[in-house]
Design a protein around this nucleic acid. Structure first.
Lengths: 127, 127
DNA sequence: TAAACATATGAACAGTTATTCATATGATAA
DNA sequence: TTATCATATGAATAACTGTTCATATGTTTA
């Protein structure tokens, strides 16, 4: 049976690097200022949503106008199901909101923040 | 054998939706303002880089200080190889730059833009 | 009520991706 | 030169993700 005793930090870190090259002052200082691991995981999940061509296109067209699922599918020349699945993800991440009108569901961007992030991304790639 | 004749747009779009629900005025107007497909693909690829926990962490620690590969591996408690692979991606996307000093390679953020995008993402998830 | 329609969703499959392992490269020191 | 160190990289694997297909849900109209 494996022992689960507390080891000192060096023992753990030995696998990561031979350890001769570490700049301890820098590492220790940054370590102190590190946010909760969970916060960075959430941040990655947030950006992950923007990291798919279909979702980017959906966000883009919604930045132009509120739209129903079928409109989006036609604009993007994709199946309704695919769009619907992606909208669910965008909904879960609170990037879009929606309102129902009879059989139709209209989606729109959750807030101006989203457009601003898209714009900043555009700026970067057009440099 | 299937015919490959040019069909009108309705024929193509029939697969995407039954087409009774399309709001043509909206769709046509947004269609006109659509950026090149390639631009949106590039944008998705750009954000994809931020959509991974390891890379987000790397970008975060580099926002605090220039650092060598080994430092990053230790901070993140990950293998040197994993970090090196991710740094290559960040390099390719021009998110980080590096300088060599003897055997050691120091990485840093390519420009202030990156920090600003991280900050905006943080803002959004802390709302 | 039944039929038609817009959207949502579960399961399956294909394609992608992050990590690990082994090894290569490039630099310094002996 | 040889040994050592820091980093890079190719291949393999495991996990994840987006689309499709079939079907379900919820709404309106006949």
């Amino acid at each position: 049976m494996e022992q689960d005793n507390k080891k000192n930090i060096q023992d753990y870190e030995i696998d990561q690097c031979d350890f001769i090259c570490v700049h301890e002052n820098v590492v220790n200082q940054v370590l102190k200022a590190m946010p909760q691991d969970q916060e960075l995981l959430d941040l990655a999940d947030f950006f992950k949503v923007f990291g798919d061509a279909t979702r980017i296109k959906i966000l883009y067209v919604l930045s132009q106008s509120e739209m129903c699922v079928c409109d989006i599918a036609n604009l993007l020349k994709m199946g309704q199901s695919a769009i619907s699945h992606q909208l669910r993800i965008l909904k879960q991440m609170r990037l879009v909101k929606f309102r129902r009108e009879g059989k139709t569901v209209f989606y729109s961007l959750a807030d101006g923040h989203i457009e601003s992030i898209l714009a900043q991304g555009m700026e970067h790639i057009n440099e």
